[in-house]
């Protein structure tokens, strides 16, 4: 594959999804182990050790790479499970591990000095000094930027830091500084940082109330949909809440991030790689998103506009409402 302007980093929740993503044109696939060491610890998802070995084999055969996300925070008294994940990822030939926890970065940099370290978005490193910290202390080579920076801020940042940047290009949208949010934990006892889950399905209920549909999390109403409204999953920060008499999507609208239209801006801002969110998504969805982004990135590298791919992505966006999110300053 010719060197494109932007590297395409794609999710895979299963071995089949990994092969699909590679076949659809992913430069890199990122995965997690089937336990609490990764931030998409959902039932039926993720990789056993033998599956990871095979997946890495398949990717390397095709000249692509595999990153392993070990991006929850290790539990006190049980760090060994996280250390084992790092050791195994290194032994199986992972091209990089994606980590947020300082203790784990320290461990990985000392035990596996040749293992490439990427800073997970869960570390919420949003400015040059914080990023420099991770680079100087642990030799981190790439940072996945929080979804709260504007393109202008990213452009400034990439010039100030000695590491590559990867940004979210498509999928879920987090309004909070990632890795510093205990909202799910406060309401359900399950947190992204500790258990690798946010607003877990086990705590979700839907209830028909007359012609309205009520969605709840941990017994608290997250949204009430009229019969003409499209009901969405009750992710806590995408719910409708009341402040005084005013009810609104207080934290974030139930939209999905889509950067199809601003890839050129991101490339010019010095971004190295695009990350597509969604290890929890189905194979067909991931393959389709990857295919469209492959078109866009190749088109960009060749100086061609790809309006069909941009439109197709818009259709794939969650709730079919897409947003540039924080990449445009008006978001704040």
């Amino acid at each position: 594959m010719s060197k494109a302007l932007l590297e395409l980093v794609c999710p895979a929740g299963t071995p089949a999804a990994l092969r699909d993503a590679i076949d659809a044109g992913a430069d890199v696939v990122y995965v997690g182990f089937r336990d609490e060491t990764n931030a998409r610890n959902f039932p039926g998802l993720n990789f056993s050790r033998p599956e990871l070995r095979d997946g890495i084999g398949y990717a390397h055969q095709h000249g692509r790479e595999v990153f392993v996300a070990i991006n929850t925070y290790a539990a006190a008294g049980n760090q060994a499970a996280w250390h084992r994940a790092i050791d195994d990822a290194a032994a199986l030939g992972a091209d990089a591990v994606i980590i947020a926890d300082i203790g784990l970065l320290d461990y990985a940099s000392q035990r596996h000095p040749s293992l490439r370290l990427h800073l997970s978005v869960q570390a919420a490193a949003s400015h040059a000094d914080a990023i420099r910290f991770y680079h100087e202390a642990f030799g981190v080579r790439r940072v996945v930027l929080p979804r709260v920076l504007t393109v202008a801020e990213i452009a400034k940042l990439t010039r100030q830091i000695p590491v590559e940047t990867e940004v979210f290009a498509f999928g879920g949208m987090c309004p909070m500084a990632e890795g510093r949010c205990s909202l799910s934990s406060y309401v359900t006892g399950q947190s992204p940082n500790r258990q690798g889950v946010c607003s877990p399905a086990s705590h979700v209920r839907y209830e028909q109330r007359g012609d309205k549909l009520v969605s709840s999390l941990g017994g608290s109403t997250i949204n009430i949909f009229g019969k003409d409204e499209k009901a969405g999953y009750p992710t806590l920060c995408k719910g409708r809440f009341a402040v005084g008499d005013y009810a609104s999507y207080l934290f974030e609208e139930p939209t999905s991030l889509s950067t199809g239209d601003i890839l050129k801006d991101l490339a010019e801002a010095g971004v190295k790689a695009l990350k597509i969110e969604g290890r929890q998504r189905g194979r067909a969805y991931v393959a389709e998103v990857v295919r469209q982004f492959r078109e866009l990135v190749d088109g960009l590298s060749a100086g061609r506009a790809m309006p069909a791919a941009t439109a197709a992505l818009r259709q794939l966006a969650e709730g079919q409402q897409d947003t540039f999110g924080a990449y445009r300053k008006a978001w704040r």
Binding site: A74, A100, D101, I102, G103, A123, A128, D129, A137, N193
Partner: peptide, 30 residues
């Protein structure tokens, strides 16, 4: 914030509740 941790390294300081200290490894490093 980790930027502050970087600036304060090597001199006595306090780590606040907004820094993710979840385990022995992180505590030891800080």
């Amino acid at each position: 914030d980790l930027g502050a941790v970087r600036s304060l390294a090597g001199r006595p300081h306090v780590i606040g509740p907004f820094i993710n200290v979840y385990n022995e490894g992180t505590l030891d490093y800080l």
